[in-house]
Design a protein around this nucleic acid. Sequence first.
DNA 1: GCCGTTTTCGGCCCGACTGTTTTCAGTCG
Length: 584
Amino acid sequence: MTPKEVAQTLREIAQLLLLKGENTFRVRAYETGAEAFEALSPDPMAPGGLLERVRTGTLTDISGVGKGIAEKVEELVKTGTLKYLDELWTDLPRGALDLVRVQGVGPKKALRLIRELDVGNLEDLERVVREGKIRELKGFGEKSEKQIGEGIARLKSTSVRRPLWQTRPAAQKLLAKILALPGVHAGAVAGSVRRFAETNGDLDLIVELKEGAQVEPVMDAFCEGAKELIGRGGTKASIRIAEPENLQADLRVVSAGQFATALHHFTGSKQHHVKLRAHARQLGLTLSEYAVARLEDGSRLSIADETEFYAALQMAYIAPELREDHGEIELSLAQARGEGPGLPQVIERKDVRGLLHVHTKWSDGAHTIEDMARAAKAAGLSWLAITDHTVAAGTNPHMTAERLGEQAKEIAAVQQAVGIRVLRGVEVDILKDGSLDLPDEVLKTLDVVIASLHTRHGLDEAAQTERLAKALSNPHVKIWGHPTGRLLGSREPTSMRMEELLALCAKTGVAVECNGTPERLDLSAEWLRHARTVGARVSISVDAHAKEQVENLDWAIGTARRGWTDRERVVNAREADEFLKLWQ
DNA sequence: GCCGTTTTCGGCCCGACTGTTTTCAGTCG
């Protein structure tokens, strides 16, 4: 039994309680409990982990876990089953929880469909829609029936969440269209896209009108070109867009002076807000998308931006990427009081001085060393490292000892011509046995060695861990390239004991890559947070195969920020000489 | 079900939109 499985069970309980119309605060307690277990070390055997806590009876030390949940988790871990859960299921069909996945069907409607129409799963629901039975129920009508039918079709046709590399550009495109309108004073992408969550269920846009401007033209522009109009009221509209197919986009229009509170509200996350609002109440304040107001008389505080928003709550500013209730609220409060370490000083674009992980025509890149150097310089960087592939990666051409010598001459010439420091490097392949694709005598002559896996992703966990541990122990390796090898939406992370390997990197000084290829985002924010706890260094890498991909920097930085990456642990957030000194 | 710098009891975030309603419940974020 892993913490993740415990969390899933607690969520299942929460959903069942919700369906049964239980007290919503009890439902939330189970959700909070689930989050607490998700935040534990994923390895149940880890020190301070799940099994140790069960053994020592210290589950209730976890915030959000009280006596009730602790007892259930103990039973679950010891026996693998939970009587309480079985009881909750006794009078419900197995497909009950699928019903609330249909848009427009919540717990109340789902329960009535189960009780009054004997609907047991999605197929049943589809049938009663077809037979026109739903409209006969009190409180339902023709429109609800139609809506439910469409909701089922949508559920079947699309996976719910899309990768950020699809959603973020779509959101920015939509925003640009709105910002071009004359009545618009300000606008921003909010929601999980702004928080840099790697998958998103929808897009959220916030727009502030100029003084006296009309809302209708903005709504019109937003809805124009939509694949489907979901809803439209006086201040908000929801549509489905064509690309990514059927993705929902929500627009919220606010009047002058409400932008900061609205942006904060629609950025989320839900968990962050729930805790924030409870804290606000203790201060005698209430939060909404319109204002921060005093409970006693409803008077409003003036909030110009999100820094002021947090200041009104006696907190230090929390970056959007951190707003997940992963401990950031407590750290922010402590920081404002001048106590403790405070929030991480998360990396920003201006901190990054060097462009790492760059491919050129010497292997599978589209452009020359000079092209890449000019692109790096244009992006405001002061150095870059050329790191082409070796033979095992399967590219042609590729780097050999001899070609590295030839490349050195070109690098020296480019450095002179372009006026930017260019380091010599390689992305060396990790071979089956954990040895590297170039001999140590060659590697030691280079400034930067990135070791990456490109083959045999399918080895079992033990063998893969051993293979990587050997490679990462090579004294010439400075960076571990795209550690998990995952591709969002198409390839799962390689199976390995990541915690062990991150601890190894912390010990040897090898930086783990935060690879900014939009489909990779590897390491993930989740693992980067773990890298932080063990003290591993991080490389903000573009893995650029063309000069335009210098912009992968933004993807890497967003992911790194979400992963609580402090700037002092980022190896390329320093000038080239300082970077090289890190391994001396 | 959880929690405590007012509390071991009594709280627990807030508002828009929709549909089917004659005044509001359900859903969503």
